[in-house]
Write a protein that binds this DNA or RNA. Structure first.
Lengths: 116, 116
DNA sequence: AGAGTATATGCGGGTATGCGCATACCCACT
DNA sequence: AGTGGGTATGCGCATACCCGCATATACTCT
């Protein structure tokens, strides 16, 4: 579940969505991204790093440049797994299983009702 | 693009993913969710509201209870649009279009290089 | 109307996030 | 080795987020 959260967090920022949008066009080094989005160098670098850490991008060194490109395979994996989630397949996870177990015994009374 | 960000933000929280997971099982009122996840009432209510605002849930009043259920149609819409995004279809948006335009003129030089 | 219960929300505090600035790091070239 | 340019990162600040507590609101029943 933590991986899924990291994935979603990576996609819930405008800068990073714009980066992804640009990288879908073609692979870029940091300085190209900063020019395309008209943002600072540290901002570009950091957000590229976050997207890479989340698994959406791969980085390769090309001399002085670090070239980032979309990891299509991983992106597809995320897309399909998320689609599956939203179409009804529940999260297979320890915590989630506990939740569902407790749900079986849950009744329509709130905190006050339970206090009795 | 702001909608997409809101959608992703809604999914980037453990509590909300657990709620979604439980609601995929069956529709629930607030007090059932708080029991299933063993969380406080305000926490359950607030996060249910966030998921509803993002479009994943619909709420209907049933007497004292507010019953939340997954909006399958909307969820499917999100799933497919995200899948499309990750499979290469760029974001159609004013800002993103500007970015791509600037990308055409971007070159492999950084801030120092541009200063010259 | 009044009491009781379920849900929503204002408020304050702790934590996480995103950014710019400055600087460290890394690589190529001389 | 030293210099220059591209990239990563520590730090501090402003802001956003999440939560619990207390309270307000909504609904039902007597």
């Amino acid at each position: 579940m933590q991986d899924l959260i990291k994935t979603m967090k990576a996609l819930s920022d405008e800068t990073r969505l714009r980066i992804l949008n640009v990288l879908l066009e073609r692979e870029c080094c940091v300085c190209e991204v900063m020019q395309a989005l008209d943002i600072s160098q540290s901002r570009a670098s950091r957000n590229l790093g976050i997207l890479e850490d989340a698994g959406f991008l791969t980085a390769k060194r090309d001399g002085v440049w670090t070239v980032y490109s979309v990891d299509w395979q991983a992106a597809n994996r995320y897309a399909t797994s998320l689609a599956k989630l939203l179409k009804g397949s529940p999260i297979s996870n320890g915590v989630s299983a506990q939740d569902k177990e407790r749900l079986k015994h849950a009744v329509r009374v709130g905190p006050a009702g339970l206090r009795k």
